Simulated assay, not measured.
Amino acid sequence: MASSAAAMKELQHELENKANDLRKLQKDIAKNHEIRKKYTVQLGENELVLKELDLLNEDANVYKLIGPVLVKQDLAEANANVRKRIEYISAELKRLDATLQDMEEKQNSKKEGIMKIQQKIQVLQAGKSKV
């Protein structure tokens, strides 16, 4: 009888630890979604800027806002900078997607682990009620 009580306590402790791990993972997933959302907005803005730059004539004046000052910039340089930014943001989004997929797989395995522990607890409780 004492061994089943100890086993129950051990299972409950393990369940709490896994539940805490799951909560932490869910917070990380939420943080990933927030960051991904910001990058998606930035990507859209930069693609819009690129479309606007493509509409300009080669002799058009282009200015870049640096702090409170507008600085004249070469059209080709501005175009290259925006393309590099789009490339960087796209790479970050791919990295975030891969990280998110990995975290979701971990989340699913943790959920399965929690369910197995809960089943073991139920079996132990059913055994106690028969006694």
Rank of each mutant, 00 (worst) to 15 (best):
M1F: 02
M1I: 05
S4G: 02
E10K: 07
E10I: 07
Q12A: 08
L15K: 10
K18S: 07
A19Q: 11
A19I: 05
N20R: 13
D21Q: 11
L22E: 07
K24L: 14
L25Q: 12
Q26G: 03
K31F: 00
H33Y: 11
E34Q: 12
E34D: 14
I35K: 09
I35M: 06
K37N: 15
K37R: 14
Y39A: 11
Y39V: 08
V41K: 13
Q42G: 04
L43V: 02
E45G: 01
N46D: 02
L50W: 00
L53S: 03
L53E: 01
D54I: 08
L55R: 11
L55F: 03
N57A: 11
D59A: 06
A60W: 01
N61L: 03
K64Q: 12
G67R: 08
L70G: 04
V71H: 09
K72G: 02
A76I: 08
A76P: 02
E77N: 03
A78M: 04
N79M: 07
A80T: 07
R83T: 03
R83N: 07
E87N: 15
S90Q: 15
E92C: 10
R95D: 06
T99Y: 07
L100H: 08
D102I: 01
M103L: 08
M103F: 02
E104V: 08
E105S: 11
E105M: 05
K106P: 00
Q107T: 09
Q107Y: 06
Q107A: 10
Q107C: 09
S109W: 05
K110Q: 13
E112R: 14
E112W: 13
M115W: 07
Q118W: 10
K120C: 09
K120R: 15
I121P: 00
V123D: 14
V123N: 12
A126L: 06
A126P: 00
A126Y: 04
K128R: 06
S129L: 02
